[in-house]
Every structure is written in C-alpha cells, then in structure tokens.
Computed example of a mutant assay.
Amino acid sequence: MKLAETILVEIAGEEIELRPSLRHAMRLERREGSFRQLFREINEGSLTAAVDIIEPHFFGQYLKNRVLDALPTLTPALTAYLLACAGIDPEAPANDTAGAKSGKTQTFSEYLQQLYRYGTGWLDWTPETTLDATPAEILEAYKGKLEMLKAIYGTSEKAKPVDDRPLDDKFRSLFAGIGTQKVESAA
C-alpha cells in the first residue's frame, strides 16, 4: 500500500499539493451523494466538484476561474486523490484484503469513523494527528500495532504440536491411556 503519495495539480502555472488526509475524506464524504457522486462528477468534468476537492489545499484568489481553465487536465489527479482519501491503492492486487473485516458490511461514513477510532484509540494518536494522516497511513500503523501486540502477547491461535510417531505407536498410546491391553488369541 502506498503511503502519503504526493498528488500534484497544476493550476494557472502554480503547483498545488493535494494531501488525502482523513480530515478531507470525512469532509468530502458529507457532500450530497458522498464519494460515489463525487467520482461521477469528476469524470463528467464538474467545476464544483473539482473546486470542492482543491479548495482546502489552495491559498490564493480566483480558484474557480483557475480550475475552469485547467479542468480538462485535472481528472486523473483528482481521481487519484479520491481513491487515496478512500484508502484504496489502485495498484494493489485485486485479491488483497488488507484491512477488510470478515463478512461485516459498513457504510463509507462508518469506515471513516472506524479509521478515526483506530487512530485515536488503538494508536493513541491525538485527534489532530489522526485527522492529518491519510487512510493508508492509519491502516498501516494499525496493522503494525496488531503485529506488535501479537509479538508481545501471542495469539489465540495455538500451534498444535507435531507428533511424528508411527500410527501404531499413536494407537498404543491412545489405548494404553484408557487401560486397554492387547490380548493375543490362543488359537
């Protein structure tokens, strides 16, 4: 998983870095239609959607005019930004289930809230640090914390001891343990 990949857009000759932090993901998720609608609008060349994404990262004047001129070239970078805000690595293998929980579905809002809980609860980060981190950074730090806890405390999965004895010896041990004796026939 890529962590904090730099996403740059050029508007009116000025480079603007878009940092896909949890804060920005939560803000964009609250938009009408959430990320699904935002993806659709970006692919359709919506000025409003592009401005909504870029505005928190831009410190200047006349953003709408500048974005309007650059709009046709912004789609790939804005799409990459939205994917990063969602914690999705488009280059990851399709069967990669990192961070996925078994069987339980959740809304995108719940997913972002879970990331916040990971940051502030499991990782003991401040709310500010958690909101400034990207979803990929939070997920990787969370995995690291789980690995550390497993290394310190072990896991509930007990490794079964390997018994390399021949099958006859295993049966003898089993039946001897319950008081069974082998009786030879007299015939």
Rank of each mutant, 00 (worst) to 15 (best):
G154L: 01
L139N: 13
K143C: 07
Q37I: 02
K170D: 00
P161I: 00
E110C: 08
Y62H: 15
E41D: 12
A186Y: 00
F175P: 07
F59S: 15
I7P: 04
K170W: 10
R40F: 11
E44W: 11
S109P: 01
Y153Q: 12
I152K: 13
F175S: 13
S173G: 15
L8W: 04
A49P: 08
K160E: 12
S46P: 09
L68M: 05
G154P: 09
F171E: 14
R19Y: 09
G121L: 01
I11N: 01
G13F: 02
N65H: 08
T105F: 07
L18V: 00
A70P: 03
E140D: 11
A12S: 14
T79M: 11
R31F: 05
P72L: 05
A50T: 03
I53F: 01
L115W: 07
P166S: 09
P135V: 00
L8I: 02
L18P: 08
F39H: 13
D89G: 07
E15P: 15
L115G: 09
G99R: 02
E29D: 09
A50W: 00
T155V: 06
S46K: 10
I42K: 13
D69Q: 10
P72T: 02
N95I: 12
L149I: 04
D168P: 11
A94R: 13
E137A: 11
S46A: 08
V162S: 15
K145A: 04
I7H: 05
S102N: 14
A133K: 05
D52R: 15
S185D: 00
G154N: 03
E110H: 07
I138E: 03
F58T: 06
E14G: 10
H24N: 04
E41V: 04
A4L: 06
A159E: 01
I178R: 15
E5L: 03
K182E: 01
L146C: 12
D69K: 13
R31C: 04
V51N: 05
A4K: 13
K64E: 03
T75M: 12
L8V: 06
G13S: 08
L82Q: 09
G144R: 09
V183F: 00
N43V: 06
S156L: 03
D89K: 05
R40V: 07
C85L: 06
I54W: 00
K143S: 14
T6D: 12
T6R: 15
R165D: 12
Y142G: 08
E29T: 08
M1V: 13
V67T: 06
E140Y: 10
A159G: 11
I42P: 07
S185V: 06
K158S: 06
T134A: 13
Y62P: 09
E184N: 11
L149W: 04
R31S: 12
P76G: 07
T180K: 15
E29A: 13
A176K: 14
R36G: 14
L18N: 02
T180S: 13
P90C: 05
A70N: 03
T48L: 02
I7W: 05
M148F: 03
H57G: 05
